Computed example of a mutant assay.
Amino acid sequence: MTALLVALGAAVGAPLRYLVGQWVKDHRGTLVVNVAGSFVLGLVLGLPLSPGLVAMLGTGFCGALTTYSTFSWEILTLSKRGEIAAAVGYALLSITAGMGAAVIGGALAHTLVS
């Protein structure tokens, strides 16, 4: 049953990731989905949800929405073009913003539950 819930979440997250990629044509699309997914995951993990919902929303939806492989590819592409400062800046911004979004999502969940 859990695998089905993960698949259901992924069936929403993956098309949403594709649509954002079509809407924002460059690495900013990856940044948007990764930060949004981090926020949602922080929220999901901070709420008192059933294990099934956590699997569907956290693993399925957030797992399909976010993309570490594209993030890595974009950093590699920037580096190969000699845009080292842009690559480092993009990596630092992505990691910092993602972690911050997860913390904010968790804090919001805590506030909602309290």
Rank of each mutant, 00 (worst) to 15 (best):
L41S: 05
A64H: 01
T67G: 01
L16V: 04
L4F: 09
G98D: 12
G58V: 03
A14S: 08
A36P: 06
G46H: 10
G89S: 11
M99T: 11
H110L: 13
Y18S: 03
N34R: 07
T66C: 04
R28V: 14
A91W: 11
H27Q: 13
V113Y: 11
Y18G: 02
A64T: 01
A102Y: 08
L49M: 10
Y68A: 08
A101P: 11
V40E: 02
T67D: 01
D26P: 06
S69Y: 03
Q22F: 04
L41C: 08
T96L: 15
L93S: 13
Y18M: 05
S50D: 06
A101Q: 09
T77E: 15
V113E: 15
R17I: 00
A101G: 08
M99G: 13
L112F: 09
M99F: 15
A11G: 12
A91P: 04
G13F: 01
L8Q: 00
L112H: 06
S79D: 10
S72M: 13
G100C: 07
N34I: 10
E83H: 13
V33E: 02
V40N: 02
T66S: 07
S38V: 04
M1K: 04
Y18L: 05
G63I: 01
L92T: 13
I104F: 13
M99C: 13
